[in-house]
Design a protein around this nucleic acid. Structure first.
Lengths: 187, 187
DNA sequence: AAAATAATTTTACAAATGTTAAAAAATACT
DNA sequence: AGTATTTTTTAACATTTGTAAAATTATTTT
């Protein structure tokens, strides 16, 4: 998924603003297994995923919890770094070879102050992330583990293929054993 | 908490922009028990709470789940209505007599297009809500019910006084019986 | 103040989910 | 291809959490 598709999906921009934005974006590649971000550090970039998939997770004393997958077209960032300049929760591991677009948040912040179209694009970016985060929260609060698994199957069938079940279970908030039990149910 | 305090806490605005914004905001009062919003309707306003407390919840076939409390200084909105103009999940009940500031989203949208300061204010509004929503999600995913209860006690001690425990339990994602058990633990 | 209503806690039991360990299946390596 | 390694499933058991109903406590109404 190329950059203009991604940025346009967030919010359409006039050509001049697109140029300003794209002029500050660089492209990067990393192999599967690469750790892109580390928890407890302030991250000074945001990323757009051109190709590949990543998981955001936190280390707990005895295990780790995956709380988000980001794939082609998604924006990947440490929210707390981006919004309030504080260190975030997330380690980020690339689960496949990835191609990423990178943008310095500092540069973006300047663009927000000088270009009203980019300011509204940034507003939309935050609003769309907000909706997604609320959806995840609602799923967690309102639905059973089984419902969440089947919902994931429907909405993101590729995830089950691309990500190992241990991470999926963690993402769903259950143990891998529970996920196996759910998958074993005949339906 | 008055309007300029609230809007300034979100993001400082130059005087001219404050005037534009405040010119479109009206003030309302409702008694305890009033249902401010209904689920499955597109809501055309957002609210800022001057005084009082509200709970956002969804009706399930046999029970209801409270997923957010909003109080003085908070922004209260149907996220899906505000961001994508779709009907939301939430019923909203006022748990105390409330004084609210009301703003039409349509008007706000126009201001976003014409005033870069207000556009950035709106961006900040979304970003701060995003951080809060992520925090709630993280609490749910990373911490035990007991930890979440004690965290709530620390961060919002007034909530326990102002809101009945059945709603708190629902908010924490546990049954009221479980909450009673947690509260009975000696510490 | 007494009665009625609502909220909270407690109890007993049922259901769901977690933990640990072993078996089976899938994948990677030489 | 065969071996080693990793991932997934299954089994047995422990723990947590839920449900329903009763008991207690608090609040509201008359």
């Amino acid at each position: 998924m190329n950059l203009s598709q991604i940025s346009n999906t967030i919010h359409p921009l006039p050509e001049a603003s697109i140029q300003k934005l794209e002029g500050h974006i660089s492209e990067l590649s990393f192999p599967k297994g690469h750790i892109l971000l580390r928890a407890n550090k302030v991250e000074s970039n945001i990323y757009f995923i051109k190709k590949g998939i990543a998981r955001l997770y936190t280390q707990k004393p005895d295990n780790e919890i995956t709380f988000l997958f980001c794939k082609e077209g998604d924006t990947l960032m440490s929210l707390k770094s981006y919004v309030i300049g504080q260190k975030g929760y997330e380690d980020v591991e690339l689960l496949e070879d990835c191609e990423l677009y990178q943008l310095k948040t500092e540069v973006l912040e300047d663009l927000y102050q000088s270009d009203i179209h980019i300011a509204n694009w940034g507003r939309k970016l935050a609003e769309l992330e907000l909706i997604k985060t609320e959806e995840r929260f609602i799923a967690r609060q309102f639905r059973t583990a089984s419902e969440r698994y089947h919902e994931l199957l429907e909405l993101h069938p590729d995830l089950i293929q691309r990500v190992q079940l241990g991470h999926i279970a963690s993402y769903l908030g259950i143990s891998q054993v529970s996920l196996s039990r759910i998958r074993a149910e005949i339906r």
